[in-house]
């Protein structure tokens, strides 16, 4: 087991902050359309300008996700992919890339493995952080006890419905960055960036100086630019998964389409004025 002095997510945000650049953080559902393509897609996203990868662990009952990521999860689960296999895949990928990776998993797969065992396995695989969309701070004691021992960032979500006192609590237990949910709703591409984002981030900044990333509904390079104007990081999920779904049967087209779209998004993020 190798010990790292710094967490890759923290290092990345420090680098980007000193350059005054926001982070582009695309999402992939592990195993969609196949486990083999997940590794290639991840490296493609890095080549297209991703600063950090949010790697989704597919779940049978994803209550925080809209139809796009539901379908991606169903495609992934047809390959019988499990959390253990995803960790093994990250370990293999670590021979090729040093990009920070945050796992996004619903709580039950982590609970089944056990928080301690999960955090240890995640560190050994080279995972840098974990996002659990159905785990509010109130229920996170076991995870919060285990994660720091394994240098794993715990990234909690703030929602537009969170009052200031909850924002403060969520920010205080978050490490790596705070995940700002842009809208009241599930994941999915939207025509417009939610108007709730800017005031929410302004309020959140009153409670923390940790990096803040915006996700849910960021779908176009223009929206990515808008989000980057107020946040330290921009997460794009469903819009990329839509491209993957469209080209899932042709590997060459899939990788080139994802690269093209991700490059536009990355340019959108970095072009904030």
């Amino acid at each position: 087991m190798t010990h790292r002095r710094f967490n890759r997510i923290n290092q990345k945000f420090q680098q980007l902050r000193s350059r005054g650049t926001p982070a582009f953080m695309p999402y992939l559902c592990a195993g969609d359309p196949t486990p083999e393509l997940t590794s290639k897609l991840l490296l493609t996203l890095e080549a297209a300008g991703a600063d950090l990868i949010e790697l989704g662990v597919p779940f049978s009952d994803p209550i925080a996700d809209g139809p796009t990521i539901q379908r991606a999860s169903e495609r992934a689960l047809t390959h019988g992919i499990s959390l253990q296999q995803i960790l093994a895949q990250v370990a293999t990928l670590r021979q090729q890339t040093d990009i920070p990776i945050a796992l996004m998993s619903y709580y039950n797969p982590i609970f089944r493995m056990g928080e301690e065992a999960f955090c240890q396995a995640a560190q050994e695989a080279g995972v840098d952080g974990v996002i659990v969309p159905d785990l509010p701070p109130e229920q996170a004691e076991p995870l919060l006890a285990a994660a720091p021992k394994y240098n794993l960032a715990t990234i909690f979500l703030v929602a537009p419905t969170s009052p200031p006192e909850r924002m403060q609590r969520i920010a205080s237990v978050s490490t790596g960055f705070v995940y700002c949910v842009s809208l009241t709703g599930v994941t999915g591409a939207r025509a417009m960036l939610s108007e709730e984002v800017a005031p929410m981030i302004a309020e959140l900044r009153n409670h923390t100086d940790k990096p803040i990333s915006v996700g849910f509904g960021v779908s176009t390079p223009e929206q990515a630019t808008q989000a980057a104007q107020v946040a330290d990081g921009v997460i794009v999920g469903s819009a990329i998964v839509n491209v993957i779904e469209k080209h899932q049967d042709d590997e060459e087209e899939l990788l080139s389409a994802v690269k093209a779209f991700a490059s536009e998004l990355a340019a959108g993020v970095t072009s904030r004025a």
Binding site: I63, P136, A159, P160, T161, P163
Partner: peptide, 20 residues
């Protein structure tokens, strides 16, 4: 007070729903 019956129960939901 935290909504548990022994180890069972609780509130494992997205943050959006917690205030509700």
């Amino acid at each position: 007070a935290t909504g548990h019956f022994g180890q069972f129960g609780g509130r494992y939901v997205p943050e959006t729903l917690m205030p509700a």
